[in-house]
Simulated assay, not measured.
Amino acid sequence: MDCRSASATAGEGRFRVNANGKLLDVWLLVRCVTCDRTSKLTVHERVPVRSLDPTELHKYHLNDPDLVASKLLDPFFARHRRFSLDWTGAWRLDTPSAQLDQEWPVQVEVVFEDPVPVRPDRLIAQGLGLSRPEVLRRVKCDIPLRRPMSTGFTFTVLAGE
């Protein structure tokens, strides 16, 4: 980022494609949450037009929202461009309070409307009002609770002791 803050960015949902003869540059425009400046993240630099998939090139020109999202959510792309996304307030676990008063164990299904990388232990702790150590003790799940994920999952909450 231009401000060198290494802070989170917000996607503007736009690509910029620049042609120089038969070579193309493609950038993803993002806004720094800290300084509010727009920066360009290089997607392709000085690549021959024929080397790009025509469908993908068309999506760059259309500012395809799914392509923007896939680039922003790609950890390899983020790591090599030295940016991170601000996920503050991007997710929550909706739980009816009556459900927690039912007989134990309680099974909960998590469904993401959009791919948001979140650690399941943090999501469950916040949603159920439990501490993270208590989540690790009381929750049984087929996925690692401490590894960020962006797909749905199911977990079981055991009775407290």
Rank of each mutant, 00 (worst) to 15 (best):
V47E: 09
L85V: 08
G129F: 01
K59L: 14
D114H: 12
R146K: 14
E113D: 03
L24R: 13
A78F: 05
H61A: 04
K22F: 05
R4C: 04
C35D: 00
A159G: 09
T154W: 01
G89K: 04
T156S: 15
H58I: 07
W27S: 09
V43E: 00
V157I: 14
F153W: 12
D114I: 12
L130C: 06
L67T: 06
A125I: 05
R146E: 00
L72W: 00
H58Y: 07
R79H: 14
P133G: 02
C32S: 09
L24P: 15
V106N: 03
V157K: 00
L72G: 02
A8H: 08
V49S: 04
R119P: 00
L136R: 13
L158D: 10
F112D: 09
V47I: 03
A90F: 03
L67E: 06
Q126H: 11
R137H: 10
D121I: 13
G129P: 11
I143R: 13
G152D: 03
D101W: 13
T55Y: 04
D2N: 09
V110G: 07
V106M: 05
P48H: 15
D36P: 07
V110C: 13
L128Y: 14
L100E: 06
T156G: 15
V108P: 04
W87M: 03
R46V: 15
D66P: 11
M149N: 02
G160A: 14
D114M: 12
R147W: 00
R81L: 06
H58L: 13
R146Q: 05
A90E: 13
T38P: 01
A125N: 01
D101M: 12
E45M: 11
L123C: 04
D66Q: 07
D114C: 08
S5T: 07
A10S: 11
L29G: 12
D101S: 14
D101N: 10
T42C: 03
V110Y: 01
N63Y: 04
P120I: 13
G13S: 08
R132H: 11
D121M: 10
L62Y: 03
G129L: 03
P96M: 00
T55K: 10
C3K: 04
Q107V: 09
E161W: 09
F77A: 13
L128V: 01
P48S: 15
I124E: 04
K59G: 03
V106S: 07
